[in-house]
Amino acid sequence: MNANTATRTAAHTPLTGADIVRPTVTELRLSAFRAHRGAVFPLGPLTLFAGASGSGKSSALQAYEALARLGAGEELESVFPDPAACVPEWAEADRQGRRGFRIGCTVDGPAAPVQLDLAVQAEPELRVVGERLTSGGRTLLATALRDPGRSSVQAAWHTAGAVAVTRAPLPDDRLGTALLPLRVAGKTEGQLQVLAAAEQVVVALRSVFACDPQPHRMREPVAAGEGRLRRGCDNLAEVLHRTRSECATRHARLAAAARVGCAGAVEDLAVEELGDGTVRALLGRGGVRGATPVGRLGEGELRFLALALVLLTGPGVLAMDQAAEVPSAYQALTVLADGFDRCLDPRQTRQLVSLGAEMAARGHVRLVGAVADASYVRGVEGVTVVDLVP
């Protein structure tokens, strides 16, 4: 996907640096990743990638999620189980038979905009071959593969002390930026700048929840537990069991959303405890109809309920590992939803987008999704649509 073939329409006023307090990813760069080449995508509080199959919507979200997982400290092998698939088809191997891909992002926050760019070798073996962390035109971290025979890269980070930079090896299977807090002493002004930039990037990337509701796994009763919603939302009833008692206001909002997104009359969203210790969610119908177990709902209705729950809840209800050492007030939850409109009708899609825009405007959540058709949401205040063309 070439950046020149993408058009961007926005129905919101872009945030300025002074408006942003929490670290947030405001730009995704796919220099060479799958079908993308030289692509730069600005990200607003609610961004939807739209386009036909093969236009690169899913690839953009996959790159974002990969950066998030690397920022959380995961190894390359777990983040990229099929690295060759990430290499653009047009990328030719060099004399040593090496091919790879390049991705990056910009993170705004208290430390001013910080750019992270990563070069990954996919063939003949998976490894980081270059990483750069910059801010204000200054390189804060740069790594390079100097000796292919060693499982490390040579790193140099800004010091501004007795020496201009500090050099040391870093593992070639992890994101160096995520390792800096363990390596940089923080004694000089330069080291403090490096630590602030690295923390800003890591906090933004770790504040990501990738959500892909699986209706076929949401129909059966589930065991009551800690009530943290998993990626596939298969434990929807368990989470509703928790949120119903913990936050009556947001539970009422979810029930109100269900009235719009589910067929028939909906008076309440309840949870029933069964004799075997499991719980199941119910739609309260009122009158003689009683209640309908959510397991009887259609796939679109189940996906709608799951996505509405994600947008209305916070990180404490989602199965994600945020930066525990950073106060939650300084972290912004970002939801990644590939196939955001899958199985949904236009009414359901527009309702979810309106809900997401409302929560984003309040600063509770950011949303980056992929949709096949954005015609139903164009003009919704607070929504950025990125149109992709194969």
Rank of each mutant, 00 (worst) to 15 (best):
137 G>E: 05
117 D>N: 03
114 V>D: 09
119 A>Q: 11
146 R>I: 00
134 T>M: 12
137 G>S: 03
112 A>N: 11
149 G>E: 12
129 V>F: 10
124 P>M: 00
109 G>L: 15
109 G>D: 14
133 L>C: 08
127 R>C: 14
121 Q>F: 09
150 R>M: 07
123 E>D: 06
137 G>Q: 02
126 L>Y: 00
149 G>N: 10
117 D>P: 04
142 A>P: 04
124 P>N: 07
132 R>D: 03
138 R>Y: 05
140 L>D: 11
136 G>Q: 01
121 Q>R: 13
153 V>T: 12
128 V>C: 13
125 E>I: 08
111 A>P: 13
129 V>P: 05
146 R>H: 00
150 R>P: 06
118 L>R: 00
124 P>C: 03
113 P>A: 05
119 A>W: 14
137 G>M: 00
113 P>E: 04
128 V>N: 14
123 E>N: 00
145 L>Q: 14
109 G>Y: 15
123 E>M: 01
122 A>Q: 08
146 R>Q: 04
149 G>S: 07
154 Q>I: 01
124 P>H: 02
130 G>R: 09
115 Q>H: 14
127 R>Q: 15
138 R>M: 10
141 L>V: 00
109 G>M: 15
149 G>Q: 11
140 L>H: 12
112 A>G: 13
114 V>Y: 11
142 A>L: 06
110 P>D: 02
150 R>E: 13
146 R>D: 10
138 R>A: 11
146 R>L: 01
148 P>K: 07
144 A>S: 10
144 A>K: 09
141 L>I: 07
140 L>Y: 13
131 E>Q: 15
122 A>N: 06
150 R>F: 08
120 V>F: 04
137 G>T: 00
148 P>Y: 07
132 R>L: 12
151 S>A: 14
145 L>R: 15
114 V>R: 04
153 V>K: 02
117 D>E: 08
138 R>L: 12
123 E>K: 00
127 R>V: 07
117 D>A: 09
148 P>V: 06
114 V>F: 12
125 E>H: 15
153 V>D: 10
116 L>P: 01
111 A>S: 15
109 G>S: 14
122 A>K: 04
127 R>T: 11
121 Q>T: 07
126 L>V: 05
134 T>E: 14
139 T>V: 13
116 L>H: 10
131 E>M: 10
151 S>T: 07
149 G>A: 10
124 P>K: 05
138 R>C: 06
132 R>A: 12
118 L>Q: 07
119 A>I: 01
116 L>T: 09
135 S>H: 02
